[in-house]
């Protein structure tokens, strides 16, 4: 008989996690429950759906509870006003039935290389908040995802929230998912950016890319190529060229390495020229 625990509040969830490190932690279940009837029955289930949910915005940052669904993010006017690429990415997670169940925390815990919410979090310099009975800690996403579907999440920890700082004035935010089809698709390539423009130059650049490496990554070489440069076609070309040092795409059943390499570069280049146009 599988034990099934549903905490009464967030603190209770953290306590239960400490007591049952071998239980399956289930949020929306849109990844973990695929073909559940063919999977081994877990010894116990800790159902945290609905916990750690909610979006709040203050002068410095937005805080998105880990249990916030993609649908809530997609329809958040507060997020759309300042971090529009978050709702934009949320709208492209699966389709409505997935968005109503799937959570941002679940996406983080899985940290699949094709996780649709992750490049945006990289570009927005998100911090992941973790908690256990030992206390709370915060880690940047880059340090959180340690490899192919591996994370720094401790066996007794839960993800409680994601915070994204308010972008500096004049920051261009970009997002694009290239999936196998228009909707309900797995990504072939994804890219997001935050390009901070000061006096006609890219003072700081963050590029988050997905489905082109073992985990979602920041494109460091591409960022270096952009930093300090004007958002011109020449910079765009340099960024695309530099990206080749950052990513290691593969051939698989959904696309090819060559396509991913080319298109990822094109997406980043387009971000740069779009940023140039956005600044007028």
């Amino acid at each position: 008989m599988t034990a099934y625990l549903r905490p009464t509040d967030d603190a209770h969830a953290i306590a239960l996690r400490a007591a049952h490190a071998d239980y399956l932690v289930l949020a929306g279940g849109t990844d973990l429950l695929v073909a559940a009837h063919h999977k081994p029955v877990p010894v116990g289930i800790l159902d945290i759906a609905g916990r750690f949910a909610g979006i709040s915005v203050d002068a410095d940052a937005a805080r998105i509870g880990a249990g916030t669904t993609w649908r809530a993010i997609a329809t958040s006017a507060e997020l759309a006003a300042t971090w529009p690429i978050l709702p934009a990415a949320a709208r492209e997670v699966g389709a409505l039935q997935i968005q109503t169940r799937g959570t941002i925390g679940g996406n983080l815990a899985t940290s699949s290389p094709v996780g649709d919410g992750l490049p945006v979090l990289l570009a927005l310099d998100a911090t992941i908040h973790l908690a256990s009975v030992r206390g709370a800690r915060a880690v940047p996403y880059r340090a959180f995802c340690t490899g192919y579907r591996t994370t720094a999440l401790g066996a007794d920890e839960l993800i409680t929230a994601v915070t994204v700082p308010r972008p500096a004035p004049g920051t261009y935010l970009g997002w694009r998912k290239v999936g196998t089809r228009a909707a309900q698709s797995i990504s072939k390539v994804m890219a997001a950016c935050a390009l901070e423009l000061v006096d006609g130059r890219i003072a700081a650049a963050r590029f988050g890319v997905g489905a082109v490496a073992a985990r979602p990554i920041r494109a460091a070489a591409a960022e270096a190529a952009a930093t300090g440069q004007p958002p011109t076609a020449a910079t765009a070309a340099a960024v695309a060229a530099a990206l080749r040092h950052d990513i290691t795409p593969i051939d698989d059943v959904r696309s090819t390495a060559a396509y991913r390499l080319e298109v990822a570069g094109n997406l980043l280049a387009r971000f740069v020229t779009n940023a140039g146009r956005a600044q007028g």
């Binding site: 549903r6 289930l26 279940g29 559940a36 159902d47 759906a49 039935q97 997935i98 109503t100 169940r101």
Partner: peptide, 17 residues
């Protein structure tokens, strides 16, 4: 499920309790 469209193949009984 509580008014929101979901895939019932991706929801387990415990979640609907």
């Amino acid at each position: 499920l509580d008014g929101a469209p979901v895939c019932s193949c991706l929801v387990v009984a415990g979640q609907a309790d």
